[in-house]
Design a protein around this nucleic acid. Structure first.
Lengths: 341, 341
DNA sequence: CGGGTTCATGTAACCGATTACATCCCCCAC
DNA sequence: GTGGGGGATGTAATCGGTTACATGAACCCG
């Protein structure tokens, strides 16, 4: 390994000068700089990242703590985060499969000293608690957490409102028996979306039924199974709202297999608007989330905090969502304009 | 920030002892160890990663260089890599959106000194070349690269063979006019799959047509467009083989929109077997790739090299693929047993 | 011509860990 | 009692950068 001292010797200057050249300090004379650069290239020198971050106390990387990493959603999210980070000269240290408090705590511990800031997505209730143990002024942005205390910067989706609007839309289309395939019970997004569903039913004076709330786990397979259970209900629902697109797609599959027409016999809607949604048969109505923008936004917030040393604004930001009405729920067009069937 | 010296002072021992306790050295007395540990916890001490890796010359992380990060494929891949890495106490430094030689070179440069080894996925021709500039004994595993020189460890999919088998299957079902929606022309997997398609046609004495080879870019949208172009052909194909599942799904969507029955009027097949594939309507026949196993395998190979200092075995490993026949191409069951229609 | 200013460069302390080597203590055998 | 051995602990060098401060040369001006 060639070090800064090797370069300094070969270029007949001091290590300080080499360091200055590397960091584009203005205090170096043109010819000296050129000579040093040439030597550096010739020797194939590249600075040792660990040494540098030991003395600068900056790592130029940010940590990303994620839960189970399933499906298109996370690919989009990581893409959004990475592009923003790269644009600002930062690297990404990613740790996935962290769901509960214990593993998150371990992961946070392991990341200490490796990153300048953290994006933490911990949708399980209380899972974000270990974040409190981080050093006081360490920059953190929480993603889709139920950070009730408002002690952190956080970004959440307009889950409840989006779900409410979608279910409202279904009601406006004339549906009265509306089922929901819910996400994991211990998941913030899932419970919020469920609340939105309840709110919409309540607002319309409809009473939900326990039987029409079937649990899933955000995977296609669980949506498939849940839908089959719904089809066996005596009072079969005329519309199914799934907690995310993956489950909605599973449901579409179960309906197709059972020969149930969509949207004629049963309407279906999802949440997220993953890229796949519009290519379903029929194209899936869903609640659009700009996933990569979510990642980008979180990263900007974090880098802002990292850059100017400011830490917690303790600000919770809500990313709006929009209804995307395609054919899987019948009655195209704007919700309000749709006539009930 | 609390350092090892703070702990040493508070526990009335030397820094060496604290370091030994942290690293579970056997040279520490039971009571001393306990005292140090207690103090460390009380002060909230955790070792500075950069300092440690400066003196140990190990970072406990591996770098992952990826291209454009689209869709379920990459979520699965990252999951496989991360789980294996975590299991061995390694972290993941991920950099995406690196396609051409120039950006890959920059990314490699940026990763130097930050990681103990690299997994590089560079499907564009020649994109893996900058890897040669890495230090001699630096562990690297290439993923799906056309590493012709065999100068590196690499893992590739049985792209050509898988494509050949699938097209052969379509031929065995009686199809004669078989189109292909190809991936990006400058992509290793894409060109290999295309070669498999050609090989199968040739083996059956069929002549392909330029018109039946429509380019896509591995996204659903491109599959959709490509399929529409195929539908406008005078001699419309009776089967469509897509270079990956995302494009196959786009094609299914275009066919459904055009009212063309699948598999009755046109058979469709894809490649990858992303989780979504079996939930399509009709369920998508495809070539199964165990994506997360691919990531796991690459990581194992890399960590093996990192661990025992051994570097390039210069061994190219091929991950087998298997046909998964579902309903989108008609004639279920084993390929050979299917009767032509 | 002397003193002050400016600017390129050098010297060496420092970041926070690991670890080779030194030291010290205790115990045991002769 | 003394010398030797071994195990626990301490001291200080080291990893490879950054940067405060020192140095010294060139230049300007009164």
């Amino acid at each position: 390994m060639v070090t800064i001292r090797d370069v300094a010797r070969a270029a007949r200057v001091s290590v300080a000068t080499v360091s200055r050249v590397q960091n584009n300090s203005s205090l170096v004379t043109e010819p000296t700089g050129r000579r040093v650069r040439r030597v550096a290239v010739r020797l194939g020198y590249s600075p040792h990242a660990a040494a540098r971050s030991l003395s600068t106390r900056r790592t130029s990387s940010i940590g990303v703590l994620l839960p189970d990493l399933y499906g298109e959603f996370y690919a989009e999210l990581i893409r959004g985060i990475d592009q923003t980070a790269q644009g600002h000269g930062y690297h990404l240290l990613i740790a996935s499969s962290h769901n509960d408090k214990a593993t998150i705590e371990a992961a946070l511990q392991a990341m200490r000293g490796r990153v300048d800031g953290l994006i933490v997505m911990a949708p399980a209730p209380g899972a974000h608690v270990p974040v409190r143990n981080l050093p006081e002024r360490f920059p953190v942005v929480l993603l889709n957490c139920n950070a009730s205390g408002r002690t952190f910067d956080s970004i959440v989706l307009a889950n409840r409102e989006g779900a409410r609007q979608m279910v409202h839309h279904l009601i406006a289309l004339g549906h009265r028996r509306i089922a929901m395939i819910t996400g994991p019970s211990r998941n913030y997004d899932a419970t919020e979306r469920r609340r939105g569903y309840h709110a919409a039913l309540r607002a319309a004076g409809l009473r939900g039924s326990r039987r029409w709330e079937v649990p899933g786990d955000f995977t296609q397979g669980s949506g498939f199974e849940a839908c089959r259970r719904l089809l066996n209900c005596k009072a079969r629902p005329t519309a199914i709202f799934a907690g995310n697109d993956a489950m909605a797609i599973g449901a579409l599959s179960a309906l197709a297999e059972a020969g149930v027409g969509v949207p004629d016999q049963v309407a279906v809607a999802g949440f997220d608007d993953i890229p796949m949604a519009r290519y379903m048969h029929p194209p899936l109505s869903t609640v659009r989330v700009d996933i990569s923008a979510l990642g980008e936004r979180a990263t900007r917030r974090l880098l802002d905090a990292v850059g100017n040393g400011r830490t917690h604004h303790n600000r919770r930001e809500t990313l709006p969502v929009t209804l995307v009405i395609r054919e899987s729920c019948g009655g195209r067009g704007r919700p309000a304009a749709s006539s009930p069937r």
